[in-house]
Amino acid sequence: MFEMHFHNKLVTVGNELSGKLVWYSPDLHLPRQASAFVYWYTEGRGDRDDQTIFTIPLQPEQLIRDQRVDFPFAVTIPHSGPITYNGSLIRVIWAVQAWVKLPRSSKRDHTQTWPFLVMPR
């Protein structure tokens, strides 16, 4: 469905994460809804927290069958972070997620996630 090309998979806080989300699908069923965003979420013993930092502009009608469509993006990671963190009870994970909802006949939602690293300055 999508491919992700990060320009930099490792980014320090206050700097820019950029890359390109590439759509390609020979599937007959084109998505009815689609979205992609840069976000962080937690994993571990605590209930999940998450926050979307940036939404990649993307409309379902732009997703055409058998044709590569590029969605370049650039987003500044906040100075305050959070940074990628692997603790004892908590993990903080940064990722880009793309999500498409396919027509009812195919009964499928499709989610792809690409993690990246956010480091302190």
């Binding site: 994993e43 013993r45 605590g46 993990r91």
Partner: peptide, 27 residues
């Protein structure tokens, strides 16, 4: 706290070093 001097793959997910995709006791 995982240092980046180590394998970046493990900095993203240290549980991969044990052959797990996540902490088995995460909610």
């Amino acid at each position: 706290m995982t240092s980046l001097r180590l394998n970046p793959k493990f900095a993203l997910n240290p549980y991969l070093a044990l052959g797990w995709h996540a902490n088995p006791f995460a909610l």
